[in-house]
């Protein structure tokens, strides 16, 4: 698949010397959904703002659909839709007028059919003649999406689309994103909800302190770093791990009741059968057996934590 967005060596320093982006490289392929995960202040919004033209880069190169965002900004920006994090809308304007305005601003001729399709898709059609200030927070967020889609962009940025949104609306938002993907729109979304990335992204990037720590296929990332743990809970506490079980790298819990075994989910032989046999042979009595899989959250926390440790020696 060809790239729709190519970012190379993107840096952004502010006048006060703060470096928001420290040489970011990123390639987004046509048609995928990429989630950029990162803590607050990691540089997610700065990255998006720089691609869209709201912030000027200090150095580096950004191409959208092969068009440089500086030299050929018209062609590049025409392809982009941006849904900002803050709900920035003209309160007294009608929904349909503000969406029509966005379409015109992006140089597209008036097309009532296209606007109607977008508003229906976002369940906004019934509210089209309402003033924006009369809408609920969730509806306002939909208006922002409608504005971003009004000129039929090929690359859509969603900056924390579900921040401060209730669970039901979040699920709705995910459905909208799925629908857009089906329509061929490439989507880059930032979030600090790991479950969101896990639920809808094809690839996941982790950004912290202005650097891309990694960007990887979600499945591969979870498989690579995704280990599974087996907790063997014992009836009687142990002082140390018995000699007979030394080969398993077991970790004994602090209360002496739990032995934890880590294994690779993709391995042919996980070693579980043999372990349990050996546990039985060692004369230990089992009370319960539990397995756990590391989530994207564990991976993320681990990565960001490791990065912070390297930064502060």
């Amino acid at each position: 698949m060809s790239a729709i967005l190519e970012i190379t060596g993107l840096r952004k320093s502010y006048a006060d010397g703060f470096e928001a982006l420290k040489g970011v490289d990123l390639e987004i392929r046509k048609g995928e959904i990429v989630a950029l995960l990162g803590p607050n202040g990691a540089g997610k919004t700065t990255l998006i703002s720089t691609v869209c033209g709201i912030t000027t880069a200090t150095s580096g190169d950004v191409k959208v659909g092969g068009h440089c965002t500086l030299r050929d900004y018209r062609a590049a920006r025409s392809m982009i839709g941006l849904v900002p994090q803050e709900i920035n809308l003209e309160p007294f304007e009608k929904v349909i007028n503000t969406v029509r305005f966005s379409r015109g601003l992006f140089g597209k001729p008036r097309n009532d059919g296209a606007i109607e399709r977008i508003l229906r898709q976002l369940s906004l059609w019934d509210k089209r003649n309402n003033q924006i200030r009369a809408l609920s927070g969730g509806m306002k967020r939909r208006v922002l999406i409608a504005k971003a889609l009004s000129h039929e962009p090929q690359l859509l940025f969603l900056d924390e689309p579900t921040a401060g949104v209730d669970v039901e609306l979040r699920k709705d938002m995910w459905e909208i994103v799925e629908g857009l993907k089906a329509a061929g729109v490439t989507i880059v979304l930032t979030t600090h909800y790991i479950e969101e990335a896990e639920a809808i992204a094809d690839r996941v990037g982790v950004i912290a302190r202005g650097e891309m720590l990694l960007i990887e296929d979600k499945g591969a990332l979870m498989a690579r770093m995704g280990q599974k743990q087996l907790d063997v809970q014992l009836s009687a506490p142990l002082e140390t791990v018995p000699e007979a079980l030394a080969g398993y790298d077991l970790v004994l819990g602090s209360d002496g009741h739990t032995l934890t075994y880590s294994y690779d989910t993709r391995a042919e032989r996980t070693g579980i059968t043999k372990l349990l046999q050996d546990v039985s042979r060692a004369g230990l009595v089992l009370r319960d057996v539990v397995t756990r899989q590391s989530s994207l959250e564990d991976i993320f926390v681990d990565l960001v934590h490791r990065d912070e440790e390297e930064e502060t020696p």
Partner: peptide, 17 residues
């Protein structure tokens, strides 16, 4: 000033204009 104040200026800056 109003778009700057309410934040809608983002759209002007990101538009192909």
């Amino acid at each position: 000033y109003f778009p700057k104040f309410i934040g809608t200026v983002y759209e002007l800056l990101s538009a192909p204009v």
